[in-house]
């Protein structure tokens, strides 16, 4: 069984200027352990598709299954809990909580899951080590560079033992060096631990590292290439 299964997903945004079909009858399967990039020009529906897979937005038609769960019919509260326990998110703007340290940001999700303090602190430190930022564990986000913040965001995304990680333009705000380091970390996690990554990206450096590239245009999948 596929880890992520999209069947005929349709998403239309309504505005004064008229209806916009952001995702147009897309059907996809993502298997566990994939390192996949969704690419395409601006406005092609990459982020909308990622939001639908992450349960952040509901499709107007079609269904999305994550593992054994059909998330399209879930209530808002059930979706929040589902995201907490099954999906890791990495955002373009990092979105760390400014009043928490790197360690606390990483442990934040585990605290919501009810993981015991000693266990979550140990795992948070292990994850910060894994992303190479354990020396900044007690720094707050405003004391970290963009690349460092994004690495903490990756550690946070991994903290809940998710089934997969959704990363929306994760390198868009990073310089070349930080992008390379981040991609190395994610590729290593994918190779060593089998963590599934699904990116939306414009960044050729990310596309070059992906093992599967899905190209969207006007909300439709126009190519799906396994590298």
């Amino acid at each position: 069984m596929s880890l992520i299964q999209l069947n005929d997903v349709l998403k239309i945004y309504t505005s004064k200027a008229g209806d916009v079909t952001a995702v147009d009858h897309v059907s996809l399967s993502i298997e566990a352990g994939e390192f996949t990039a969704i690419v395409g020009p601006s406005g092609c529906g990459k982020t909308t598709l990622l939001n639908a897979i992450g349960g952040l937005d509901r499709p107007d038609k079609g269904s999305i299954r994550i593992g054994n769960s059909d998330i399209t019919g879930m209530s808002d509260k059930a979706l929040i809990d589902f995201r907490l326990n099954n999906i890791g998110f990495v955002f373009q703007a990092y979105n760390l909580i400014p009043v928490l340290t790197a360690m606390e940001n990483t442990a934040f999700i585990m605290e919501l899951q009810g993981v015991k303090k000693t266990e979550r602190l140990q795992r948070a430190m292990d994850l910060l080590s894994a992303v190479g930022i354990d020396g900044k564990a007690n720094n707050r986000p405003n004391q970290l560079s963009g690349g460092q913040q994004q690495r903490v965001a990756v550690a946070r995304a991994l903290a809940s033992h998710p089934q997969f990680i959704l990363a929306d333009e994760p390198t868009a705000n990073l310089d070349s060096s930080s992008t390379g380091q981040l991609l190395d970390i994610m590729a290593k996690l994918n190779a060593d631990e089998g963590m599934t990554f699904l990116f939306s990206t414009h960044d050729q450096r990310v596309i070059d590292r992906a093992r599967r590239v899905i190209t969207l245009e006007d909300g439709k999948v126009i190519s799906d290439v396994h590298v």
Partner: peptide, 15 residues
Amino acid sequence: REFTMQIALGVRRKL
């Protein structure tokens, strides 16, 4: 924006 991000991460609105 922060509320939105935290809800996306799995923080319940009640919290």
